[in-house]
Computed example of a mutant assay.
Amino acid sequence: MDDETIGFVKSVLSDFIGITGQPVANFAVVSLRSHILLDYLVDPADAATIRDYIDIACLSGLSGREFLGRAEPYCNSDCFLLYERRFDSMTGVRAPMFRRRDNTPFGPAAGPAMRVHVPVHAAAVPRASLDESFFRALASFREIVVTSSDSERWTAWQEAIYCFNQANTDNESMSEHLEWVLMSSALERILGAPPNADAVAKRFVEAIVPERPQLYFDLAILRDWVREFYRLRGDFAHGRIRSRKLRRWESWRHLLFGAIAFPLLTKALLEREKAYVFTENDHCQLAALAWMLREALHASAAAKSWHQYVSDQLSLIRRSPTAS
């Protein structure tokens, strides 16, 4: 960036406050076609594209998380929060306009009212990292679809990714029930499945199997899990705080399994679109998910990290006679 642009960026950043109470020191500058959107009047299509790519980056970060322990890498979707500012080179930064529930526009005055503080649960993440091959595949698929004659097809993917990301904020104000509804809705939307548990489960197991599986995994346990996960959402979606339906897995485990399953499902769907090739690690994660689902049904199973589950499957691949 040239000196003038750097000055503009710094003036915008001065309103974003880190955990120390000082302006943020680490941030990402997002550009579109090598252009930072600092114009007063931004093309709505460009703004929508930026939002899509940030959501794609967010999913790419969430897909590589370590679970069941304190190990890294880890992130949450609030590490990818998008804040918009109205800006022009003459008057500088101005507060964005908000709309009240009654559709009345209003905006805060300049000064302290414009300060945005980094959420504590995002500040606790030392560094967010992306699965770059996954990001590139999603970005490429988006570009192909939105410029095709069937551009509406991206809408289902866009909405599913958005719902999944919103379900993975780590924000304490986000209820478990809302996370459950959002995550199960993301599965239904990206699969294009009818809104019932059997249909979602059927589409899920048909879609998540890669073209050339490198490991055996239990499809039946995956089908049972996603059927139960989607079936239980009905009570939460219809305003019931507690569900009386029988379940095999604990609530927190359901949400963990969903957090692992959706990125893998998205990769499998991209592979079917010839936009992505399942990696060795992807194959191991899919087999590890099925294994973890089975072990979670037995209280006597030894506690292991997600990394260990995946490593166990990697060892099986490496010991296979067909491994190179």
Rank of each mutant, 00 (worst) to 15 (best):
G258M: 02
G234T: 15
N168S: 13
F229A: 14
Y230R: 08
R242Q: 13
W252K: 15
P213H: 05
E211A: 11
G258R: 07
D198W: 00
Q214Y: 03
A201C: 01
P213W: 01
R242K: 10
P195D: 09
A197Q: 10
R242T: 13
D224H: 03
I221G: 00
W180S: 09
D235L: 08
L256C: 06
F257R: 01
E188I: 10
W225G: 10
E179S: 11
R248Y: 12
R189C: 06
K245T: 12
N196L: 03
N196F: 05
V205A: 08
N196S: 09
L182Q: 07
F217S: 10
E228P: 02
P210R: 06
E179R: 15
Q214W: 08
Y216C: 03
F217T: 08
E250L: 14
N165D: 07
F262H: 02
G234I: 13
H238P: 04
D224V: 01
W180R: 08
E228K: 04
R212Y: 11
R248H: 14
M174G: 02
A259D: 12
E188C: 05
E179H: 00
D218V: 09
E172V: 15
K202Q: 14
F257C: 07
A193K: 02
D218K: 04
H254L: 15
N196C: 03
F236L: 10
